[in-house]
Design a protein around this nucleic acid. Structure first.
Lengths: 131, 131
DNA sequence: CCCCTTCTTGCGAACGGTTCGCAAGAAGGG
DNA sequence: CCCTTCTTGCGAACCGTTCGCAAGAAGGGG
């Protein structure tokens, strides 16, 4: 099977901070937070654990427009995101309209095994100073 | 105004090879092709010109799953893509349904300046051996 | 409760794509 | 044809991420 995972306080720490985060966070951000708390965790370990969590489905990952990998703890199945470019706040979206569209367009072009990337980036009302 | 662009054979070369490409190509790939042809163009120049073409709307860009920036020449306005995971063949899509959805969802959540990433990946009929 | 095996960690160096800084080289208006 | 200003090519710098390795734990077996 996959791999015999051991339990370490490091993995727990990463999982915990990731769960606390309001939106998507980068490995570097998570690392900074942990070090600020006095943790002696290593950067590579943060990367390794985030990758594992993402692979096991405990975390969701996406690429920011500038090429960083962002992670977010995620319990439920397939969904999309609306992310604030300024504060990183994230809303999960249900997008059956888009799912349907993707499936239909794929079929029209004779494509199968359609996978899709659908993410929205914007500025939330709080960051616009409207609230 | 934006910026006074001069015409150089380098820019022309990049534009030409980009136009010839069947799907999305990376800066490095384009650079390799040009050098193979005997061009003395520099890598940084390829990057600079691709970035300019993308900014001016002459090229379309997206990030590959492994973080590379890919470019494709593109004449018309905003659109999305259906890309074959196997051969890289690309179809441009008109997706007003999705545009509307994005705008609406953004508004519902109080987000402005909505930008969206919508790309479909699949396997084309040819690669499935059905053609 | 200790031992031993194997996985995990932390560190620093390596990596790969991209960008920067600068001096030499063109584009194109006057 | 000259002069200014933009571009180029080069190599070094950057930055996020990954690797290699030796030291450090997790946790099953004795």
């Amino acid at each position: 099977m996959a791999a015999p995972r051991r339990n370490t306080w490091q993995r727990e720490a990463v999982r915990a901070r990731l769960a606390e985060a309001q939106g998507f966070v980068s490995a570097q951000q998570l690392y900074a937070v942990l070090r600020d708390e006095g943790s002696t965790i290593g950067l590579a370990t943060v990367y390794r654990n985030l990758a594992q969590l993402a692979e096991s489905g405990e975390a969701d990952s996406l690429q920011s427009p500038d090429g960083e990998n962002l992670f977010r703890s995620c319990s439920t199945g397939h969904h999309h995101h609306l992310i604030c470019r300024s504060c990183g706040d994230t809303r999960e979206l249900e997008a059956s309209v888009v799912e349907d569209w993707a499936r239909q367009v794929g079929a029209e072009h004779g494509f199968t095994d359609i996978d899709h990337v659908v993410d929205l980036f914007g500025i939330c009302s709080r960051c616009r100073g409207e609230g």
